[in-house]
Computed example of a mutant assay.
Amino acid sequence: MEIALIVILLAIAWFWIDSLDKRERAILLGGELASRFNLQLLDESVVCSRIWLGRNRKGHMQLLRTYEFDVSASGDDRLHCHLMLLGNQLGSWHIPPYLQPVN
């Protein structure tokens, strides 16, 4: 019984640490995507909204996490975006169309 409890606690600890690592990865990738489109990532807005199972290119099961975040074009607006991480790899992403401010 004690061994099962220890295994469960270790699995929970691994999942928590892995989730923190993946959030940092999502912030990095979200920042790269935002800068590619001349947007500013509002990094305090990055949140994991869904965790599911997915298969990578080799057919192995991995956690598929969806992260939602906001970006801004001018500092006065917010665009709601998301990206999906399959394991540690960027699976897909979406940044909605926007009008760039005229200088």
Rank of each mutant, 00 (worst) to 15 (best):
C81E: 00
F69E: 03
I27M: 01
H60Y: 09
R65L: 02
H60W: 08
L33F: 00
R23H: 02
S72P: 08
D43C: 07
Q89S: 07
L28Y: 07
L10A: 10
P97M: 12
E2C: 07
V7C: 10
P101K: 11
W52Y: 12
T66I: 02
M61W: 06
E32L: 05
R25M: 03
H82N: 12
L20N: 13
W16R: 14
L83V: 03
N38P: 06
M1E: 12
G54E: 12
R55F: 07
S45E: 02
P97Q: 12
G87Q: 06
A4G: 07
D18R: 13
R23D: 00
W14N: 13
S45N: 01
D77S: 09
E44P: 05
M1W: 09
Q40S: 11
R78D: 05
I12H: 07
I17W: 14
E68D: 08
H82M: 07
D70P: 08
D70V: 08
M1L: 14
W52I: 09
I8Q: 15
P101R: 12
D18C: 06
I27A: 00
W16Y: 15
V7F: 14
R25S: 03
K22D: 11
S49V: 12
C81I: 01
G91Y: 07
C48N: 13
I3W: 10
R36Q: 15
R55T: 06
I95K: 00
H94Y: 02
W93C: 02
L63Y: 09
V46W: 05
L79T: 08
V71A: 03
E32I: 03
M1Q: 13
L86M: 01
A34G: 14
N38I: 10
D76V: 13
E2P: 09
F15R: 11
R25L: 04
F15V: 07
H82C: 06
I17L: 15
P96Q: 06
C81F: 01
D43G: 07
E44H: 12
W14G: 09
D18E: 14
R50V: 03
A26H: 02
R65A: 04
N88S: 12
W93S: 05
L39R: 03
